[in-house]
Design a protein around this nucleic acid. Sequence first.
RNA 1: GGCGGCGUGGCCGAGUGGCUCAGGCAGCGGUUUGCAAAACCGCUUACCUCGGUUCGAUUCCGGGCGCCGCCUCCA
Length: 455
Amino acid sequence: MRIYNTLMKKEEEFKPLKGNKVGIYFCGMTVQDSPHIGHLRAFLSGDILRRYLEYRGFEVTYILNFTDIDDKIIKKSWEEGVDWREIAQRYEKEYFEVEKSMNIKPASFYPRATQHIEEILNLVLKLEEKKFAYNVEGNVWYDVSKFKHYGKLSGKSIDELVEGARIEPDPTKKDPLDFSLWKKAKKKEPYFYSPFGKGRPGWHIECSAMSMKYLGETVDIHGGGQDLIFPHHENEIAQSEAATGKPFVRYWFHNGPVNLRGEKMSKSTGLFFRVLDVLKEYSPNVLKYFLLKSHYRSPLEYSRELVENAKSAWERIDNFINKGEIREIEIKNPETKEYIKKFEEYMDDDLNTPRVFALIFDLVKRGNLYYEKGDEKFLEIKSIVLLMLRILGFTDFERKIESKIVGDLLDIIIEIRQKLREEKRFDLSDKIRNDLKNLGIIIEDKKDKTSYKFV
RNA sequence: GGCGGCGUGGCCGAGUGGCUCAGGCAGCGGUUUGCAAAACCGCUUACCUCGGUUCGAUUCCGGGCGCCGCCUCCA
């Protein structure tokens, strides 16, 4: 398969370093606030990449980190008057709720920065030893001028960056571009002991240390949002390659941003932005479809209207997969197998999920026709659609019957209503349908039988 | 100001040097149906602008206009 490599600025054929084993390090959250749709898009992009590689037969080790100590976490803990660890754990927990609801495949490991202080310190010491770092009164800085390739990922040159510098440089830095490897603790700040004194890790070093620990000095794929390209990923390269002398990452994978225009992004305007809030109103499959109907690298506009649109579209797929028998069958027909080839062709092309959905909608149309005609091929088409949807991580397709007794009751109600319809007592049969609709149960009369679904 | 990207029909969104120019949503007209829903059939609206290359460009190249991201923590 081909994936777009930010480092090369083009699509490249993906080949792992070692056989069919693939290491992926994906930049997770700084656990300072609730996961929002932008985070979700990133995690979902990583999830699709991982699932598809696994489908293609690769053995994937997937690392998702948590940065669980940083300035904002500390600030928030002061504001709330609680321990900083409580903040980190709160949002980490929310991440896991999102992961579970959205059926994002759990990572192989979830390393936390604070659990890798030793690895981080070893890396900093190594950089200091190699003269890529300098210590000023307990603050250890990375000396950007020492790293020849600085800027190779983001396409920036050191000169430009100096001109464009917009923040007040820390007085202990030699150069405004230098970044922190180890940050000296100010009074009241949490700290860890180190050879440099009490302090905490800098802003980028944890990813370098943890990526190398779990996946080796050179990793196949390192991913995250495009907003991490600079400075986060650029600095990771500088640190890691200076320390090891080896390439840090072979393929850089970055997803596009989620934008909010028109309305201001704030809780007061009622614009839901937290994933857990959105999930109160829309199903995980609708949200997933919304995010995957655009290519992962394109910017994505988020609005209620657009999600509503996605909801209608998803219902078309959902209606189809809830038709007929629940049974799935093996795909034997060569004609049908061609569709799987198409699916692979599109996914191989840098995960072109929009084309995959075009294919799925074609199949839904064909499948519906077969269904109407009572053709056996219906089940085969449905099975392929389910196969593709599962590879993309959609889930929970089965009719949602809250319990057996609800199902049994509905069967009785529908039977009675059927009698009423036969007696042409439509006022009553329509009342039943309306009342059930108000409960969130949709009754649909088909030629031969009546079906129901929950909304 | 610098770097990068984008501009497709009412909306979203793929793609391609020419062959009906994906797909979804919305709209309209049918079929079906007691009605509704679902489904099927049909229809309507494209490729920002100006040049260039070409037999031919929405697709390649250049200018312009507009939009976005990054340049500061950020998925």
